[in-house]
Nucleic acid binder design. Structure first.
Length: 780
RNA sequence: UGGGGCAUCGUCUAAUGGCAGGACAGCGGUCUUUGGAACCGCCGGUCGUGGUUCGAGUCCACGUGCCCCAGCCA
């Protein structure tokens, strides 16, 4: 009985941790936060990150704060903060009564910095930036202490206060955490906590001339916001050590809620094919005039997507499908497009427009005909809740009332590509002498056509056959009597290649001189503007109505440029088009060619290692284990000790495979004697290897004696055939369809049956016997 | 190069050591007054090599590949 529970974010490595935390009572409730820096506009990457932060909070009935991470006055602006907030609101997130700002906490943060100084955990450094970089060392060279590292608490305090008072220029001093200059983690080499920046802040003005660094502000603001689970992207993994260090020293002073300090967890970033999101590149596109502004519908900014006509529901749907993992990924653009179509399919009324008009004269149509044309196709009507269906103005009516009048007059426009002089095979539209159906308006036959000076077809003369005629295809149309001219902006992917940045990098390496960058892969056809017609009914609708122009795609009026007397429509997304794909070449996705991996090259063994290797093998240890043991004296020593109480060959695998990591890390809490006792039980057949494995893992975690655990839990291998047979009978009877599938050839199910039996016996059944019994029963 | 992170269909994502599943894309079909939608089917994957185990995507070892860290950016 798996009850379906709606979740915003499907279970993942973070929710697993949250489940555990909640079970252990570490936090009263889940609080997350979404902390954008107001130095640019939100894009799809922000949307996905915010989805994780807000979605997880919703799933746990918790809260998610929206916090402006505004600690760098030189790059941040109120305009960005406002836009970010508007975008988050647009997505529908709820962050409670107020937005949180790191800058609101500056006073408290400053106090915390002083506390650190008082504890001797932070100092004012006064070397130049270049000198500091030099002293930090490199990835393989430890850093060296600055001459100012051992200043007294008093001196540090005084200097820091003078920093705040504005007595120094930019760069003269910084406040640093005193952690570890030799740490292999570069982030721990005395990270900067505060720096001097004489620049007005968009919120605090000139009140401050020192500003906290990311690491310091993030951790302390999380604590002040009552955050429990601080989620961020993977590049901050190394920074977690600073976060934990700060919590260790500051939590008790800064806490605003009961429970454990917050912890940071990282997830992989998501990028999108055929686009770029880095601020620098976006800026280059906008300022270089390659797009028409930050909200150019080809951009991945939320402002752009909104202007394009994408609904927040579609973005959310997309984010949900993209999911979360601990790997950076580039998502197939089809996923976004699919989410947009899915969202719009049931909400966009169908109307008709013609992008590239071809004039058609219906030679025999004496009188215009009026048609009540439905806004919705049969399937949307059928699935509509309550049997009612919306009008463009939002009113819900009976399906037969959801229509608007259309007129068919003697001159109509059809799409140029719906007529072909020499049609390709499979063409279901109009051709000379052929017939096609005008949707809801009868069949026409093409009797004649004229061409212009260039030889292009410019007019068709057709006979209207009404319902008498037959036609394979149905096309859309707009008649002259009801046609309103409109501009259509047809957007396509901004780049010609799915990974413009990676491509640019590759080319860079090949011919450095050319300095190719991502701009070289701009799609020249990413925007096509055409002048066509749309049926006049749209003039009566709310201007923000999203339509499906039948057979063309989803459109809406450009919110900035469209006016009733000069309509401008943006194409939000095309319809799926299996026809053009079939007739053109499809974009071939190549399977990556897997290069045969080179044979593993092992470091050669020293003579001593070689000797040990051979000695272990001689005692019956397998080659793979012997190799590990030969190289790692600690494991070998452990094994030797255990071998005093049980056969060495039987112990080797356990030492290497199960205890190896713990022994190496020096956290092994199972004694060699303890292991030996367990292995003896196994050898005597008292327990099976499954029990041994489970018990050993538990003993390792709890520091217990494994054999004692076996006794305490009363674990024993179950080898009695009659009992096991009865058990299997029951299981097989329970899954008749699986039995049938097995007999039909799905032999992988053997494992399933064994697994069921093992589960029912808490791992105590003898799997070898089970397997033998099963094979016999199932073949019979 | 020291440290850290990661690796499952073309793409994204699942699988207490026990049926490698779903979604998108693609292909084929049914249906359709949208070459749309819906429905059905097909195609297709555990980075490599060894090992442990009755059984490995999962555990162990050794490789390979990609990403992050040497800002007073975040």
């Amino acid at each position: 009985m798996t009850e379906y529970k709606h979740r915003w974010v499907s279970p993942n490595f973070i929710t697993e941790i949250i489940d555990e935390d909640l079970k252990a009572g570490r936090y009263p409730k889940v609080v997350t936060r979404f902390p954008p820096e107001p130095n640019g506009y939100a894009h799809l990457g922000h949307a996905i990150a915010s989805y994780i932060d807000f979605g997880i909070a919703k799933d746990y009935g918790g809260e998610c704060r929206l916090r402006m991470d505004d600690t760098n006055p030189e790059t941040e602006k109120a305009e960005y903060a406002e836009a970010l907030i508007a975008d988050m609101r647009w997505l529908g997130w709820d962050w409670g009564p107020k937005v949180s700002y790191a800058s609101d906490y500056f006073e408290k943060l400053y106090a915390m910095a002083e506390r650190l100084i008082q504890k001797g955990l932070a100092y004012v450094d006064s070397v130049s930036p270049e000198e500091m970089a030099r002293l930090r060392g490199t990835v393989d060279q430890p850093g060296t202490p600055s001459p100012y590292r051992e200043r007294s608490v008093e001196e540090n305090l005084e200097l820091f206060r003078r920093m705040r008072a504005g007595e120094f220029k930019n760069g003269e001093h910084v406040l640093r955490a005193k952690i570890d200059l030799a740490s292999p983690n570069m982030k721990l080499r005395d990270p900067v906590l505060y720096r001097i920046v004489h620049a007005p802040h968009y919120r605090t003005g000139r009140k401050w001339c020192i500003y906290p660094s990311y690491d310091f502000a993030q951790a302390t603001a999380d604590a002040l916001d009552g955050v429990t689970h601080s989620l961020c992207s993977l590049e901050f993994v190394d920074n977690r050590a600073i976060y934990d260090w700060l919590m260790e020293h500051l939590w008790e002073e800064i806490r605003t809620r009961p429970g454990d300090p917050p912890r940071q967890y990282e997830f992989g970033r998501r990028s999108l094919e055929y686009t770029v999101v880095s601020k620098r590149k976006l800026k280059k596109l906008v300022e270089g005039g390659y797009v028409r502004g930050w909200d150019d519908p080809r951009l991945p900014t939320l402002a752009a997507q909104r202007r394009r006509g994408v609904r927040p529901e579609a973005i959310l749907r997309f984010a949900r499908q993209v999911g979360i993992s601990r790997t950076n990924r580039t998502v197939d653009i089809a996923l976004l497009e699919g989410a947009i179509r899915d969202d719009l399919n049931t909400v966009a009324p169908r109307v008709m427009g013609v992008l590239r008009p071809l004039r058609v004269v219906l030679t025999n149509l004496a009188e215009p005909r009026t048609i009540a044309m439905p806004y919705w196709p049969h399937d949307v009507v059928a699935e509509s809740p309550g049997g009612r269906v919306p009008l463009p103005d939002g009113r819900r009516v009976q399906p037969e009332e959801a229509t608007r009048p259309r007129v068919l007059s003697s001159v109509v426009y059809i799409e140029q590509e719906d007529f072909a002089l020499t049609p390709p095979p499979g063409f279901k539209r109009l051709r000379p002498g052929g017939q096609v159906r005008l949707k809801m308006a009868g069949v026409i036959r093409c009797d004649d056509y004229s061409t212009d000076a260039s030889g292009a077809v410019c007019e068709l003369r057709c006979t209207w056959l009404g319902e008498e005629g037959k036609a394979a295809g149905v096309i859309h149309w707009v008649s002259e009597a009801e046609a309103v001219p409109a501009e259509f902006r047809l957007y396509d992917r901004l780049f010609t290649v799915p990974h413009p940045e990676a491509e640019a990098k590759e080319h860079e390496d090949e011919h450095e001189a050319e300095e190719k960058d991502f701009l070289a892969f701009l799609n020249p056809k990413s925007l096509e503007v055409v002048q066509g017609y749309i049926e006049k009914s749209v003039l009566a609708d709310p201007p923000q109505t999203r339509y499906q122009l039948e057979r063309l795609g989803y459109f809406w009026q450009d919110p900035l440029d469209s006016r009733p007397e000069a309509l401008v429509f943006n194409r939000i997304v095309t319809l799926k088009d299996t026809w053009s794909k079939a007739s053109e070449g499809q974009d071939e996705r190549q399977k990556p060619v897997r290069v045969a991996a080179p044979a593993p090259s092992l470091a050669p063994l020293s003579p001593e290692q070689q000797a040990r290797f051979e000695a272990f093998q001689a005692q019956g240890v397998g080659a793979a284990e012997a190799l590990v043991l030969a190289r790692e004296p600690r494991l070998a020593a452990y094994l030797q000790e255990a071998a005093a109480h049980a056969p060495l060959a039987a112990l080797a695998g356990w030492v290497v495979n199960d205890l190896g990591p713990a022994i190496r890390a020096d956290t092994c809490r199972v004694s060699p004697q303890g292991l030996a006792a367990l292995v003896r039980l196994l050898q005597e057949g008292q327990i099976n290897s499954r029990i041994a494995k489970d018990v050993l893992a538990e003993a390792l975690a709890e520091g217990a004696d494994p054999a004692e655990l076996v006794a305490r839990k009363g674990l024993r291998q179950l080898s009695d055939e009659a009992t096991l047979e009865a058990l299997l009978e029951r299981i097989l009877a329970q899954y008749p369809e699986k039995v049938a599938a097995y007999r039909a050839g799905k032999t992988g199910l053997l494992g399933f049956f064994v697994g069921q039996a093992m589960r029912e016996t808490q791992g105590q059944a003898n799997p070898q016997i089970l397997q033998a019994l099963l094979t016999r029963k199932l073949s019979g």
